[in-house]
């Protein structure tokens, strides 16, 4: 069975690492950074205008994949709720010794409360580890898309992309 975005519904490691929006390991080690998991050419460019430092470029045609200038990116996270495809995350690999934070867009209610523990899930929805909610940015200023910051063991940081426990049907 072939793997990748068109088959699994989420990008494979190979697709991510060869896409221009995925930062290098070196850059992830050096501080907070945006992770753009956009690997299909679709007509969309709000990430480009969301970045105050012009670190994301789509250009013409607007189906081009977003290119992350990882040296310009400060990891501010403004692009995370701006992506209509909910495909941008922010990674801070060295949040605390052994702990990283992952910011992900979240469009479910209720929003989790800061300091609660939740299951951190990967791209396929599988539970990877426990995570602690360290910040929640409600969506009022971002068109309704909230951003949740989850602290997780650093070794899971490149895989954690959401949380479970917020969905009504799971309770």
């Amino acid at each position: 069975m072939p793997a990748g975005a068109s088959f699994d519904g989420y990008p494979s490691r190979g697709e991510l690492e060869s896409s221009p929006g995925y930062p290098s390991r070196r850059r992830m080690e050096s501080g907070p950074v945006a992770i753009i998991e956009c690997v299909q050419e679709i007509p969309c460019n709000p990430c480009e205008t969301a970045c105050p430092r012009h670190a994301i470029r789509v250009g013409e045609p607007i189906t081009s994949l977003p290119v992350l200038d990882e040296d310009k990116c400060t990891g501010c996270g403004l692009c995370v709720p701006a992506c209509p495809g909910l495909a941008i995350f922010r990674l801070h690999l060295h949040y605390r010794p052994g702990l990283a934070t992952v910011d992900f867009p979240y469009e479910y209610l209720p929003l989790p409360e800061v300091d609660t523990e939740v299951d951190a899930v990967g791209r396929d929805g599988g539970v990877l580890c426990r995570g602690r909610v360290v910040a929640v940015q409600a969506g009022q200023k971002t068109g309704g898309t909230a951003v949740v910051r989850l602290a997780v063991p650093a070794e899971f940081a490149e895989e954690v992309r959401s949380m479970s426990g917020g969905l009504e049907h799971e309770r």
């Binding site: 072939p2 975005a5 068109s6 088959f7 699994d8 519904g9 989420y10 990008p11 998991e37 956009c38 690997v39 299909q40 679709i42 495809g85 909910l86 495909a87 899930v121 990967g122 791209r123 396929d124 929805g125 599988g126 992309r161 959401s162 479970s164 969905l167």
Partner: peptide, 23 residues
């Protein structure tokens, strides 16, 4: 079909919520 018809970014939202997509 043997692959997802729509955009993967839409599928990814479902997958991370644990929804299977059976091709």
């Amino acid at each position: 079909a043997d692959k997802i018809g729509g955009y993967a970014v839409h599928a990814a939202k479902l997958r991370r919520a644990g929804v299977p997509v059976l091709l």
